[in-house]
Amino acid sequence: MNFQAIKVIFLQEMLRAWETLFQSLASPVISTCLYFIVFGSAIGSRIQSIDGVSYGLFIVPGLTMLSLLTQSIANASFGIFFPKFTGTIYEIHSAPISYLEIIIGYVGAAATKSLIIGCIILLTASFFVDLNIAHPVWMVTFLILTCISFSLFGFIIGLWANDFEKLQVIPLLVITPLVFLGGSFYSVSMLPPFWQTVTLFNPVVYLISGFRWSFFEVSDVSVGVSLTMILGFLVICIAIVGWMFKTGYRVKQ
């Protein structure tokens, strides 16, 4: 293992966030506050509690996931796309490092950043509502698994994209709708039966459901299924990235 290489890639990526610290932190904090003001207080006060959880509290896990997913994908995809775009990737290719080490460095840094952001959002939320976490260990497990798997997914997008448009298109056209329709702001059981079935094809539903369960012990689907889904997603991402590196698809000429 070339630990030095992992270390410098990781630190370089963290440094990049550090230099734009205000932007990195302000945007998730501000958007969380806005969501809370609009949904939690203004609208939420007129919505009855869901499964015994007040609406303001109910949306906390979904909101966290919303930011976590978008941040993981954005960080990781940009992290690997940028050196490709500027050409500095030549150095990574010419260095004695394995693909695994490259992934650990870039995805590790992206996941760490989103983990920090996740914590900050939860902290911000705790100013608005009284947060009681029923299963802290599971909460952290879901948080970490989500950060890693979606950072890996973002990494794949960054590898695949060969222009800025492609870099944006998947987060915009796929991820955002999936998250909004994934039960961030409502319980799946509130939907008409037909849409309940459709929703079950949305992987984000399982993520949010499991994460919410770790807070309030209420969920749309069982925790086991949630965990299986997210682990499955992680395995698929690992398989794709492994295949890309092995065949050199969009990686090397």
């Binding site: 030095q4 290489a5 270390k7 410098v8 370089q12 990574i92 260095a95 004695p96």
Partner: peptide, 11 residues
Amino acid sequence: NTVRFSRGLFG
């Protein structure tokens, strides 16, 4: 930083 990065990248 960039020179230190290169050195580390090469282990």
